[in-house]
Design a protein around this nucleic acid. Structure first.
Lengths: 261, 261
DNA sequence: TGCAGGGTTGACGCAGCGTCAGGGTCAAGT
DNA sequence: ACTTGACCCTGACGCTGCGTCAACCCTGCA
């Protein structure tokens, strides 16, 4: 008669596994000797080896019992199920691998290449790293909300950088953000507001701002505004300055009915 | 401000996941409104999306926090680790798939083809299904104990089936096993013992039984004997009859010093 | 006012064991 | 007889990433 560790060794499993199989009823409890030790015969070794083979093949323990008693057809069917389950698992892991490969490659966090290039463009025109990171966070929101629109959106955005006014705006904003010790009275805030108002006016008259266009959900855009304010409270001041100039919103501008004065 | 379900929807995760991330400290707990509801800003959405991206890429939650703060080098190193972990997982699943493919193909339980053929040989010479299964269980033990010796062992075993005496022995044993209502006095037990003694004598004189040979561990062979006895108690009687004829053991014979009479 | 559809915490469940903790037992050496 | 080291026992928590109740509170609408 064998002790549990001998049994386990012959079958190539751990003692703990044997006890676990007892517990879940997969391997019948063995008789005990005078001192309460489990004692096993040769049949137990065979059973345990069968269990190990199926378990190694990826069969869930809960199914092994039935499979060992099933007829050939049922057995084959079960094998089919296991196999497709393993197949799915493999595919899931492989897509995961592709995703982490992207993580390792890109600027960071698997943003699409169009966005990465845009961020690089910003760096090239002299935008500081803090602001680039803030931009990136914004684009993370956009990508999550409308992933399929990214190529078109990014093409338009990149083209806009040809406008020297926009470049100036970015640089000014960058300077503000990079100095986190200036307050709401930083004169550059007014400069930025002036440029933004000018650009908005221009876009509006050329028809690029269409008040009836509700192509996308509103909320993500509000989120973008909120993100700016949360990231730097001076954004709130900037919004005020814009309102003074007759514009509401930030990431989607709206002309106010009557510019207050 | 967003509720938890809005936050979850924007980030593409479940509410339960968000709460879980709070619990493990991955996502900082949000401020509560007057009625105790969590309220989230845009930054939380960004954080949660980042978490989701890493989690989908197979990064363990426990590491995501560090990765989001790590510098590029540390990040890349972590990515490396994750990737090789995923790689291992995939390989493990693929070997599992190969194994279940074997399970589906073979006689059963992934025995090597040599054993399968041997069992088929037994069927061909008229051995009944019960006995074939008993044989199979025995071979499961042998395969588990000495997997690399199987081709040689099976070749020898198959060759021995050319001996008409051995074939007779198998048939007699099969008849005994197939009738489970005969007792210890079945005359076929004596017949079988006679043949076995003759075969043993023959093997001994031709030098096939070498008393000094201890090529393998003893215990698995004892297990084979024990398995026979456990499977059919009449095996015990057969061992007695063999001892009367001057032989001890079953799967490895030993000549007794003095045949008792 | 009632109801549907949010929100809250707390807890168990899942798969397959690993790994203590806190005992008793066995075999061998001194 | 005693110690020592190697095993045995049961019971219980831990791991991973949430899903899924339960039992209760809050809010907005008809």
């Amino acid at each position: 008669m064998l002790t549990i560790s001998q049994l386990a060794a012959y079958a190539g499993v751990t003692v703990r596994a044997v006890r676990h199989y007892h517990q879940i009823g997969l391997l019948p409890e063995a008789d005990r000797d005078a001192s309460g030790y489990r004692r096993y015969g040769a049949k137990a070794v065979v059973s345990l080896i069968k269990i190990r083979i199926l378990a190694n093949a990826g069969v869930p323990l809960a199914q092994i019992g039935q499979m060992l008693q099933a007829d050939a057809a049922t057995f084959a069917e079960a094998v089919q199920r296991i196999d497709s389950r393993l197949h799915d698992e493999i595919e899931r892991h492989e897509t995961s691998r592709k995703q982490i490969a992207q993580l390792a490659a890109g600027d960071s966090l698997a943003l699409p290449p169009e966005v990465i290039s845009y961020l690089d463009l910003l760096r090239e025109i002299g935008v500081g790293e803090r602001m680039v990171e803030a931009e990136r966070d914004g684009w993370i929101l956009v990508v999550a909300a409308w992933p399929e629109d990214i190529p078109a959106v990014m093409a338009a955005k990149s083209a806009q950088l040809d406008d020297p006014q926009l470049v100036r705006l970015y640089r000014i904003l960058s300077e503000i953000i990079e100095n986190d010790d200036t307050g709401d009275d930083d004169p550059r805030l007014a400069q930025a507001a002036d440029i933004m108002a000018g650009l908005a006016e221009q876009a509006y008259t050329s028809g690029e701002i269409n008040p009836d266009e509700v192509s996308h959900d509103e909320l993500p855009i509000d989120l973008l505004d909120a993100l700016a304010v949360e990231s730097d409270p001076r954004a709130e001041r900037l919004l005020d300055l814009m309102r003074e100039r007759g514009w509401a919103g930030w990431h989607r501008m709206e002309r106010l009915a009557e510019p207050p004065d």
